Amino acid sequence: MRILVALLGLALLTACGGVRDDLTETPEAIGAFRLGHNIAVVNEPAQGPFSRTVTDDEWQATMTTAVADRLGEARFFGDKYYHVGIAVEGYVLAYPGVPLIYSPKSVLIFSVNFFEDSTQTKLNDEAIQITVFEPCCTIPLLGSGFTRSADEQMEGLSFNAARAIERTMRENADWFGGTPEVLEADDTIRIGNVLEDNPELVAPEQVPPADSLASTNPQGTIGLP
């Protein structure tokens, strides 16, 4: 059991590399965008099932850091300042589950608004609600609770939230004086609130093939290591 979890965890960590490397690249400008205020509001967000608990201050710190790392002046240095306002609305930081049978996923639900500094104009009509999964949690039947602490899960979700915000900006680049882009779908980013719209994506029923169970435990049952 321990060997199986270790091997799947290694595969999970290996899968992270390509996504994480994008912060080292020089991005294409998004119109005249330069980050002004970077505000994250966290006020007792909803906590989904099977979740570890963290404080509002911890979410605020990790979210503002992720947005600054991705959208700050080290990467975008356009001619006009724009403000990004985020509200953290809900989350799940998955506990370890039962590998191959039940492994809840970590998610973050937030909304984002964009404002032009010079005119104090809100650029989007309504707050844009987004759900993100951890950017490298694509290994079937294994949740990140086995391989990551709550801090590491928060960091991964915030990293992907900042990616989702940048993607939203690129798809609506005319807000910033640029040309909108058409981006490929990303399975770790969804519009809306998954906890309300599609909760089974967070805690899916996972039934492995019979031969997997038999090879893992001759009795056909699996317990926590």
Rank of each mutant, 00 (worst) to 15 (best):
N198F: 12
T138Y: 01
H37C: 03
S149W: 01
Q60C: 05
P140K: 02
I3C: 05
R20M: 10
E200D: 15
N160G: 05
F114H: 12
A68I: 02
D186F: 00
R167D: 11
A15H: 09
E166L: 13
E184R: 09
L213R: 08
L108M: 11
F33E: 06
L141T: 03
S106D: 06
H37F: 09
F33P: 05
E171V: 05
L213S: 08
R170A: 05
Q60T: 12
L4K: 11
P218F: 10
G18F: 03
E184S: 12
G31S: 04
Q206P: 06
E89Q: 14
A40K: 03
P208C: 08
R52W: 05
E89N: 11
D57W: 02
I130L: 10
R75Y: 01
P27V: 01
G178H: 07
E58R: 15
Y81L: 15
N172I: 08
G192P: 10
S51A: 06
F115E: 13
F146G: 00
A32V: 00
V84I: 15
T147E: 06
G192K: 09
A68R: 13
P180Y: 12
P209N: 12
T147M: 09
N198S: 15
W59E: 02
L183R: 13
P140L: 04
H37M: 12
L8G: 09
L8A: 11
L4V: 11
G36A: 07
T221K: 13
I139N: 03
E196N: 12
I30S: 03
